[in-house]
Design a protein around this nucleic acid. Structure first.
Lengths: 182, 182
DNA sequence: ACCTGAACACCGTTCAAGT
DNA sequence: ACCTGAACACCGTTCAAGT
C-alpha cells in the first residue's frame, strides 16, 4: 500500500472506531469520510461495504475472543469457562451496538466480509459448549447455532436501556438454563 | 373527522399494514404516503410520529393479547397459560419485525404513542407470571420487566433467518428456564 | 495507484400556500 | 379543516475526472 493510502486507511479506521462507539453498527459512512477528511470514494475503495469496515475494526477483538477459548479451557472448569466466555463475548458486543444483528446475517452469507469472523466466534463458543457437554455440565440439546443465537439475544437485551438494570440478572437466568443443574 | 379526512386515514392504515408486513417497523413513511396517494403532510397530520402510526395499526392486536390473559387464566393451568401467552405474543411480534425494539424504548418514554400499549402488554405478562409464581410454578426471581425483555429477546431470535430453524427450540429452552421444574 | 466530489436515488420532517 | 408538495437536511453508492 502506498504511504498516502496507508495514512488514509488508518485515519478512516480511527474515526470509524469513534463513530461505532457513538452510533453502533449503523454509523454514517458519509460522516466517517467527512470526519477523516477523506473523499467518500476513498472510504469505499478501502472498505467496499459497511461489513468490510466493521470487520477491519473488530478483527482484533474477534481474535482475542477466540484466543480466550484456549486460555479458559486450560485454566477453568468447563461450565465456568463457558459462562465466562459468554460474559466476555457479550461485553464486547455491548460496546458495539447492533453488530450482532449484522453478524447474524453474515453467518448465513459467505460473501459477507464478516462471515469468517462470525464462524470463528460461533466455533469458539461451540468448542466450549461441547467440552461442557462432554462432562455433563451443559445440557445436551443445545448446539453451537443455538448458543450463537442466545449470545445475540442477550446482546440485544444489553442494548436496551429499559432492560439494563435487569440485564445481568437475565444473563444468569439464560446461562443457567444452559447448564445442567438438576 | 371530515369524510375526506376519514377516507385518507383509512387508506393510510391499509397501506401501512402492507408496508409493515414487508418491511417491519422501519417501513418508509414517504412510501406509505405515496402508495396511499396522499400528500406527505397528510400522513404527518394523522400520524405525527412513526410510533403513532404503529400504535393505530397494532392497537387491536395489543388489545387481543390483553384479552387473552383473562381467557387463559380462566381456562388453563398457570404455567401453561404463561407459556401459551408468550407464544402468542411472540408470534404476533414475528409478523411485525422490529416492533419490539420500538416497544422497548417506548416503555421508558411516557411521551411515546406506543407507551400505554407497551405497559398494557407488560402488565398482561406480569399478571400471568405472578399467578404462576403464586402457585410455585414459575421462579420467584423474575419480574414483569424481565419477562418483557425476554419476550423481546425471543422475538429478536425469531427475526433472524439464520436462527429460524432453532427458534422454537430456543423458545422452549428459555421459557422452561422461567418455570420451576426442579 | 489512488483520490475527489458531483450525481443519483433515496430518506424523515416541517411548513407556507392552497382549497 | 384539511390537503399538498416544495424545501431542507440528511443518507448510501457509483463513477467520471483528476493527480
Amino acid at each position: 500500500m502506498r504511504a498516502d493510502a496507508k495514512k488514509n486507511y488508518d485515519r478512516l479506521l480511527t474515526v470509524a472506531q469513534e463513530a461505532v462507539t457513538e452510533h453502533g453498527a449503523d454509523l454514517s459512512l458519509r460522516d466517517v469520510a467527512r470526519r477523516a477528511e477523506v473523499g467518500l470514494g476513498t472510504l469505499y475503495r478501502h472498505f467496499p461495504t459497511r461489513e468490510a469496515l466493521l470487520e477491519a475494526l473488530l478483527r482484533t477483538s474477534f481474535e482475542a475472543l477466540e484466543a480466550r477459548v484456549a486460555v479458559l479451557t486450560a485454566s477453568t472448569s468447563s461450565d465456568e469457562a463457558l459462562v465466562l466466555w459468554l460474559k466476555e463475548t457479550i461485553a464486547f458486543t455491548h460496546s458495539h451496538r447492533g453488530v450482532l444483528g449484522l453478524m447474524m446475517s453474515a453467518i448465513e452469507d459467505p460473501e459477507s466480509a464478516l462471515h469468517s469472523s462470525c464462524m470463528t466466534i460461533r466455533e469458539a463458543g461451540t468448542s466450549l459448549l461441547i467440552r461442557a457437554q462432554s462432562e455433563g455440565k451443559a445440557r445436551q440439546d443445545i448446539d453451537g447455532v443455538d448458543l450463537f443465537a442466545l449470545i445475540g439475544a442477550l446482546a440485544w437485551i444489553y442494548e436496551q436501556p429499559s432492560a439494563s438494570a435487569r440485564a445481568d440478572h437475565l444473563f444468569t437466568v439464560i446461562t443457567s438454563a444452559l447448564l445442567t443443574s438438576c
